[in-house]
């Protein structure tokens, strides 16, 4: 009895050691790089910047200044993130839905095609979309050749629509994966049962599929939102001219102005704003998709 207990305790502790060892690299990276650097900047976000020099201080007003000075770009950035994340998550959901429930044995092939868009660099994709949407791009050339337009349509590029299209294309495969995983776990019979009980296709998606895919919806949405809200390259390259994102101003604080406290305060403001948005979206989704 005593031996048995002892060996069980030993087994438990050796498994414990293995777990700790397996987690160690990730924990080291997380605490060493992420937590440590963020803590450093969090402390700095209360400091004071003078010309090319940073002085320890306690200035919560740094945050007030950020909201007062950069509220507009912050809202613009968050709205763009929301639009991109919503469009991408919805598109990804319908794609994953069709792959899972409608395409049958062609589904995996379609999924593979979608995932091949992961290949190719980020900038390459932006340039690809500039080529497609541009004045001498594929769309305009086709319309010109068909005689539908006399001059290239200028409104395809350099506006919010182009940003949404480009970022959606870039983020789509990343959003599809968790959603497809979640839909794979849903039994098709549930869909058939819902229809049998009188639910149309849309009702079935709303009542049966979406609630069960909610964690994945949230994961995809958060991924897209954070990447889109943190991006300032795509807006600079295909968006409205000079419509700077919040990230541009953060970059300018760190780079041009060497004002680390302000840059750090802006970074944490953005992080907090993103968390608030995601929490709101999460609770909204939860409420909306709750079985009644």
């Amino acid at each position: 009895m005593g031996d048995g207990f002892g060996s069980r305790a030993f087994r438990f502790s050796s498994r414990h050691v293995v777990t700790v060892l397996l987690l160690a690299p990730a924990a080291a990276v997380f605490f060493g790089l992420f937590v440590a650097s963020l803590s450093f900047f969090f402390v700095q976000s209360f400091w004071k910047a003078t010309t090319f020099r940073v002085v320890p201080d306690f200035r919560p007003f740094n945050y007030v200044d950020v909201i007062a000075g950069y509220g507009g770009p912050l809202l613009r950035t968050l709205s763009m993130g929301l639009i991109v994340a919503s469009v991408t998550t919805m598109t990804a959901f319908f794609f994953a839905y069709v792959v899972r429930f409608s395409l049958g044995r062609f589904g995996p092939a379609a999924l593979l095609v979608a995932l091949t868009t992961l290949f190719g660099g980020y900038l390459v994709k932006i340039y690809a979309w500039r080529t497609i949407l541009g004045a001498d791009g594929i769309i305009n050339s086709a319309l010109l050749n068909l005689g539908l337009i006399d001059a290239p349509l200028p409104f395809l590029l350099f506006n919010l629509g182009a940003v949404v299209v480009t970022l959606t294309y870039y983020l789509l495969p990343l959003a599809i994966l968790p959603l497809y995983g979640a839909l794979s776990d849903i039994d098709e019979t549930e869909l058939a049962a819902a229809r049998d009980m009188g639910a149309g296709a849309l009702r079935t998606i709303l009542d049966i599929v979406l609630p069960q895919a909610r964690p994945a919806l949230m994961a995809s949405f958060a991924l897209c939102f954070l990447l889109a809200a943190g991006d300032y390259v795509t807006p600079a390259m295909v968006g409205s001219p000079g419509n700077a994102m919040f990230g541009n101003f953060i970059q300018s604080q760190f780079g041009l102005r060497m004002n680390t406290p302000s840059g750090a305060a802006m970074s944490f403001t953005l992080i907090a704003a993103c968390m608030i948005v995601l929490a709101a979206v999460g609770s909204g989704l939860r409420r909306w998709l709750q079985p009644r």
Binding site: D187, T189, E190, A192, A193, R195, D196, G198, Q212, P291
Partner: peptide
């Protein structure tokens, strides 16, 4: 007519219970 518009009810081989709902729901 699709199943949603037929006066028939089906009990499936693997039941197809809605996994996110309670018995009552």
């Amino acid at each position: 007519l699709g199943p949603e518009r037929r006066p028939s009810g089906m009990v499936f081989q693997n039941y197809g219970l809605f996994q996110h709902m309670t018995v009552r729901q």
